[in-house]
């Protein structure tokens, strides 16, 4: 009987300790989130790169897209210009603060769109091409310590604090030592897994650490997957006129 009581007490202690991790002090996790956000922002410099996307869809097959990205985080601006496939060449996305515009050269029209939308029917979302906003858009619900492959990680459960982000719940696998996001799981409002993101390779550009390989897996439609690799990275200054509607129109002439 004593043995049973002792085991019960141990079990209760373990559960209580676990609960403390879940509901206790998250200050160091908050600090990690702030670091994740900060190290994804190009403050004081511009960023440009070429994104090569391989979109796998069981119905449509495999498609390759090449996109040139120009980014200026001061003022929340980016420009994504599609270079391949030829049929979509010239289409572009221009972010100006809170407004995201999509330009279609065939109609020569700009249409308002949202960072929450998927990018060109792929599994990436427009928001994936900007800096992180984990610390401002989400609150910590809990975390666990664990491993992902050979990496020691924090597994952090986040809940959106507002409706500016597409996914209301996110789970992050963040390396303990270098604070890099290795994996994300994004959930619906009904807490169903919708998308998994894998970030196997990073590169350091100045003070900024960016993933140069990303894989987004649609967890609802079997076989839907998008791989993105980042190349031709540059932090050279980008002329102001690049982040304008006129520029997108001009490059299409």
């Amino acid at each position: 009987m004593k043995k049973v009581r002792f085991l019960t007490a141990v079990l209760l202690f373990v559960l209580a300790a676990g609960a403390m991790v879940q509901a206790g002090d998250f200050s160091h996790i908050e600090a990690i989130l702030e670091r994740l956000d900060a190290q994804s922002r190009f403050d004081g410099s511009d960023f440009s790169a070429v994104l090569t996307m391989i979109v796998e869809d069981p119905e449509k097959g495999i498609e390759k897209m090449v996109v040139r990205q120009f980014r200026r985080d001061d003022g929340e601006r980016f420009l994504l210009l599609i270079q391949e496939p030829v049929t979509q060449r010239g289409q572009g996305y221009l972010l100006e603060g809170d407004n995201l515009w999509f330009y279609d050269p065939s109609s020569r029209q700009f249409a308002h769109t949202s960072l929450k939308e998927t990018f060109q029917g792929s599994d990436a979302r427009n928001a994936d091409f900007g800096s992180n906003t984990y610390s401002s858009s989400y609150e910590i619900e809990g975390y666990l310590e664990g491993t992902l492959g050979s990496f020691e990680v924090y597994i952090i459960d986040l809940k959106a604090v507002d409706e500016t982000v597409p996914f209301p719940y996110v789970k992050l696998w963040v390396t303990k030592d270098s604070n890099l996001v290795l994996k994300t799981e994004e959930y619906s409002l009904t807490y169903r897994l919708m998308r998994t993101g894998l970030f196997p390779k990073y590169t350091k550009v100045g003070d900024v650490v960016i993933p140069v390989q990303m894989v987004f897996i649609d967890e609802l439609v079997e076989g839907n997957k998008t791989q993105i690799s980042v190349s031709e990275i540059s932090t050279n200054d980008i002329p102001d006129h690049v982040f304008t509607k006129a520029y997108i129109e001009r490059v299409n002439r």
Partner: peptide
């Protein structure tokens, strides 16, 4: 079947 949509405020949801 799964029903994937956006809530009125634009968040992802599945049922």
């Amino acid at each position: 079947v799964l029903i994937r949509l956006e809530t009125l405020t634009g968040q992802q949801n599945v049922g």
